[in-house]
Write a protein that binds this DNA or RNA. Structure first.
Length: 104
DNA sequence: AGCGTGACGAACT
DNA sequence: TAGTTCGCCACGC
């Protein structure tokens, strides 16, 4: 059974529109926490891999980060590009432009 | 109750 | 500018 914290993380991720991305820190901030590390762990244990657009969650420096679902980071980059997000060398092109700011 | 881990972040060198 | 170190919170053992 997933904890409430995990659920909230997945819910926040589900709010990310197609063609946009967000960061682990933004999610943590959205939840009013600084547990960006825990957010990563939450997604890592995410049983709803294809159900939640976890591939839209990237690092604050613009790098894609990681992906535990099938295909790993390679698949993640592919999915992002398919949604219109340019991925160059494992990093998001025009990262700030693609960044989706979560709002309370 | 304590220790180590992890899809991270910011500071420091 | 790039590489390294420390800090961070939730979770499992």
């Amino acid at each position: 059974m997933a904890s409430e914290f995990q659920k909230r993380v997945w819910e926040a991720v589900s709010l990310i529109p197609r063609g946009k991305v967000t960061t682990y820190k933004e999610i943590a901030r959205f939840l009013n926490m600084k547990a960006y590390r825990a957010v990563g762990v939450a997604l890592a244990k995410n049983p709803y891999a294809p159900k939640v657009p976890c591939h839209r969650v990237v690092k604050s420096n613009g790098e894609i980060g990681n992906y535990s679902a099938e295909g790993g980071v390679q698949k993640k980059a592919e999915l992002l590009q398919k949604e219109g997000v340019e991925v160059k060398e494992g990093k998001i092109a025009y990262f700030e432009k693609r960044l989706y700011k979560l709002k309370e």
